[in-house]
Design a protein around this nucleic acid. Structure first.
Length: 269
DNA sequence: AGCTCATGGCGAG
DNA sequence: TCGCCCTGAGCTG
């Protein structure tokens, strides 16, 4: 159940394990059997992450495209692959390492043209050095949609998910309900720079921490608990608890089918 | 054992 | 906007 930072982290780990190696690819569950057969026995050339999408490139020019969705999970390990258990959509292995994929929304083989088109649909990704924030600014600047909703739009901010959305808005005292066109250039620049920082850190650490060092004492002294997702945050999944900075009750509302968290006082408008 | 929820996204209406 | 897809963890009994 990952945001972009986790996908980039997984891309690195997959690359480390398989890049330059001949791999055996199969689908114990059977749902990806045909796709697996098209790349099995060839060399992994590279692994890329674009937002929440993962692409594994092979020597025969084909790519495996994976999107985990809400439930997808990788499990990787050293040594010989264990006996497949449960619903195992995709398995990649050498004699030294294995990777197992369960429950992805997307797991398909793409030709080079299809891969290119797939990547082209994804917006600028703050974790990628080649990301162009101007493209995101242009869309935010002319949108009447709320910034809370724009941040979840993968054509605008690729890789941002529900946690980064909530947390970056809190860190900039911006209400999730403010229309995009009322976000100033300075505010946008602040948000983008912060996403680059937070998501790059999140990639390294494999978890999402957003609490500033100077606020850690206040956080630790209160009803703090590391969230199930593994990090220390200001508002995400803290509905009804007290804001670490102003003591107001953190609020929750549904925005386009997803839970939105914010502090009504720190993020007044 | 069964229910609910989750860091997503798609297509139908 | 809603329902649906995929799976597993953490509750409740």
């Amino acid at each position: 159940m990952p945001e972009g930072n986790v996908i980039h982290n997984q891309a690195r780990r997959l690359s480390r394990a398989f890049r330059g190696k001949v791999v055996v690819v199969d689908s114990p569950q059977g749902r990806f059997a045909d796709g697996a057969a098209r790349v099995s026995g060839t060399v992994v050339r590279k692994v890329e992450a674009h937002g929440k999408h993962l692409y594994i490139g092979f020597e025969n020019d084909l790519w495996i495209h994976i999107h985990l969705g809400l439930f997808g999970k990788w499990r990787m390990g050293k040594g010989e692959a264990p006996e497949p258990q449960g619903q195992l959509r995709l398995r990649i292995r050498t004699d030294e390492s294995f990777a197992e994929l369960r429950g992805p929304t997307v797991c398909e083989v793409l030709t080079p043209q299809e891969k290119k088109a797939s990547v082209a649909r994804i917006g600028p990704d703050p974790i990628r050095a080649d990301a162009d924030p101007e493209a995101a600014w242009a869309k935010v600047h002319r949108s009447s949609q709320s910034i809370g909703s724009l941040l979840m739009d993968q054509r605008i901010f690729a890789g941002v998910g529900n946690i980064y959305r909530a947390e970056v808005l809190f860190r900039h005292d911006i209400s999730p309900f403010r229309p995009g066109k009322e976000i100033s250039r300075a505010e946008f620049d602040g948000i983008w720079a912060d996403l680059v920082l937070l998501m790059t850190q999140g990639t390294k650490n494999g978890r999402i921490d957003t609490v500033r060092p100077e606020h850690m004492p206040a956080v630790m002294g209160r009803d703090a608990r590391v969230d199930r997702h593994g990090g220390e945050v200001y508002v995400y999944r803290r509905a009804g608890m007290h804001c670490y900075l102003c003591d107001s009750e953190i609020r929750i509302a549904e925005m386009q089918g997803r839970n939105l968290y914010w502090c009504p006082r720190c993020q007044k408008s």
